[in-house]
Design a protein around this nucleic acid. Structure first.
Lengths: 179, 179, 179, 179
DNA sequence: GATGAATGAGACTTCATTCAT
DNA sequence: GATGAATGAAGTCTCATTCAT
């Protein structure tokens, strides 16, 4: 796809492919071959741009974290212009979960961080950002608790089949944020 | 020379080893070799008792789920005899997290269920049990929300370095349970 | 099937199962497990009655050879009472091929004998018997040639999809037998 | 250290080794290890060039089939310039059998085709070619019958110990070809 | 006598990584 | 700079065979 002479483009194509694959097969099942095939680059390219599979997966997880940060910015905007924060958050969470393929990578990052401490700063971007965002409208304890609640709901929804109960989530958030 | 004739014991040893390893290396990095070494049985024994690595990991995850159910029972007892449910729950959660090696497997089960739907019934045992337990002292919506909160806190605590803020958690739970 | 206390019956069940399996999977793909499952006997029984897989396959091939000899006797009767030997032979050959599962084992024996010289006496039973049978109605050379022809036709028919041309075979046999 | 950079040569070496081994141990007993050792390439090379053992054996059988076709061409030439076709054929058959290692693979192909239908087109190359060749000097029925005779003789000679009776074969072919 | 348990060898295959080109 | 070739380690699994019971 990206012609032979476009190092930056190739790098990006590889990282994109790896990110998508992490959602599909899990970070532990990523392989050079899988990435090369998905990115439509020769096998050698994956090791040329990333010395190690570990490097490659880290780059992909960084990419995922950046997406997450972008997502947070969009949440911030929505909340800023909302007069019912709890309802807005519940709605944003529900919408976030509607697109499984885009919600999964972030969860993979969480899990990867459990066993790879070097990834923690990355995995904290989402949580800390969320807490900071909420802190502008509630006490620190309330913000942290609300973030726990949202993340718990997200992970459950991903590993279960039932959709989220937006109403219930709204009520819970409203209760928490007023601590 | 021939390992003790004790099929049931061997099976159990293998499952125990696999469960512990799942916590350490993750369910996707479980290998026959790893299990055999940990359980101190010959490599062939792992495939003799479990036709497939998949079978083995499933058995280990079932074992983990059972442990979880036992844990729930103990939580139920504590709560029954408590006059401050929120504080008790926060305390139980904190204590649960104090022993990482025992807390991790359950999280692995959650994550595994995200990509292996056949594991969902197993992974729901904890969450559904927790909700049922809480439902005896709060509305269904409140119980679900509290369970989300607790699970979010657990996963965060496992993937981060900071200890849980038991006081904050207590306040949040108290707020939620009264919805 | 054969109760616990019937050694002869078990032996026979094992040999029967092995013979059938040889036709299905080939002599080189026979395994104890396959035989045990087919014969519905415990795994240990297969090694109890036959010290070695080699022994087992030999016993099965002997069984096949005996079946072959029985078949020859039936051919002899038919030919004895026939006034058109060539036509009878062609007809017998065609009928023989109609039941693939029963025709295949003999071919397996042939092939096995190519690389296991100790099986040759067994594999010759058919050919030599056929030649002897034909020798009563033709010169030795003619009998041998006719046997070659019949065997060539059989193997071809088994490895191809087309049915045998009985008329053509009759004509060829008539021509050969009159040498 | 790294084996010569000669992909085409390596591929050929692997296929050659596999073909020879098929004659020696049978197509069902072909293993990567055996091939690698014979071809003097590392084990990994066999799977690098052929994704699957099945692919490898198929390639080897194709190679064998090509050899067969080449052999047929040489037979055609000999027969073209002969004034006694039956004698020439018998002579060619006898000479063909003189070199067991070169005659065996073709027989393996026949047998393999019995249980692997996808190989039939390959296994028919010899028989159909032989029939076509003979058809130029005899009726179709005669050609087919003669091909049966020759194949029957070949297989017998390979699985037995006695040499072929060239004289008898000549007489039989002469008789058949004049149908 | 009979059998389930047990195991080590070895089969196929995947793959990260290295390197000649 | 870029890549196909190459390989050895390791993974999953099968199985003949042995043996305690």
């Amino acid at each position: 796809m990206t012609g032979r002479r476009d190092p930056e483009g190739r790098r990006r194509a590889i990282v994109d492919a790896a990110s998508a694959l992490i959602a599909e097969v899990g970070v532990d099942n990523l392989t050079h071959r899988l990435v090369a095939a998905r990115a439509q680059v020769p096998l050698g390219a994956t090791t040329y741009y990333f010395a190690t599979l570990d490097d490659l997966s880290r780059a992909a997880l960084e990419h995922i974290a950046q997406t997450t940060v972008a997502c947070l910015r969009s949440w911030a905007e929505t909340i800023e212009s909302s007069d019912d924060i709890a309802a807005s958050l519940a709605e944003l969470t529900t919408r976030y979960l509607a697109d499984r393929p885009s919600a999964l990578p972030e969860t993979e990052l969480y899990l990867a961080a459990i066993r790879r401490p070097e990834l923690r700063p990355l995995s904290r971007l989402w949580f800390d950002g969320l807490v900071r965002l909420l802190s502008e409208h509630a006490s620190p304890e309330a913000a942290t608790a609300a973030a726990f609640l949202i993340d718990g709901a997200i992970i459950h929804s991903l590993s279960g089949d039932e959709p989220l109960d937006t109403g219930g989530l709204t009520a819970a958030l409203r209760s928490l944020l007023s601590i």
